[in-house]
Write a protein that binds this DNA or RNA. Structure first.
Length: 138
DNA sequence: GCCAACGTTGGC
DNA sequence: GCCAACGTTGGC
């Protein structure tokens, strides 16, 4: 199982929007970047991801999981763009901020820090575990 | 709201 | 195939 980090602006589609969708989840649509799309294409059912609030919040607020593998993005007719479906698993008891991540040497190599513009990005198991600890997830 | 960084487009 | 112009993202 792989780990990911997915970004969204909370006023456009935030964590509360995803939790409202319940167990059937929601398409992670609208991605128009090849790297991000390729990351989604390699996702498997059950892969876990952090939900990050960009622009506003600037923190990891919850954990989601992939509940449908890559399929055509229903928000466009352009056949280049695919997306997965994701559903909320649980919120982090304590949100982990970008500041916190930047201040943690072990997390300095995260794509979130190195390439802040990539909206769907891989997370290493070590990074995952550490952020879960910072998020006070038992 | 600004703007630096990045990605994409399209003329040559 | 290069690269200038343009558009978008996202931290600040």
């Amino acid at each position: 199982m792989a780990y990911w980090l997915l970004k969204s602006e909370p006023d456009v589609f935030g964590w509360s929007h995803l939790t409202a969708k319940g167990p059937s989840g929601e398409e992670w649509s609208g991605v128009r970047n090849y790297q991000a799309r390729n990351n989604m294409r390699s996702m498997q059912i059950g892969d876990k991801g952090f939900f990050y609030h960009s622009r506003q919040g600037l923190e990891i607020v919850g954990i989601l999981e992939v509940c449908a593998t890559s399929h055509p993005d229903s928000t466009t007719d352009d056949p280049r763009w695919d997306c997965v479906d994701v559903r909320a698993v649980q919120p982090l008891p304590r949100a982990v901020s970008l500041d916190q991540i930047k201040a943690t040497p072990e997390l300095a190599e995260m794509v979130l820090v190195k390439n802040s513009r990539l909206s769907v990005q891989p997370v290493t198991p070590a990074e995952w575990d550490l952020i879960c600890q910072l998020g006070e997830l038992s």
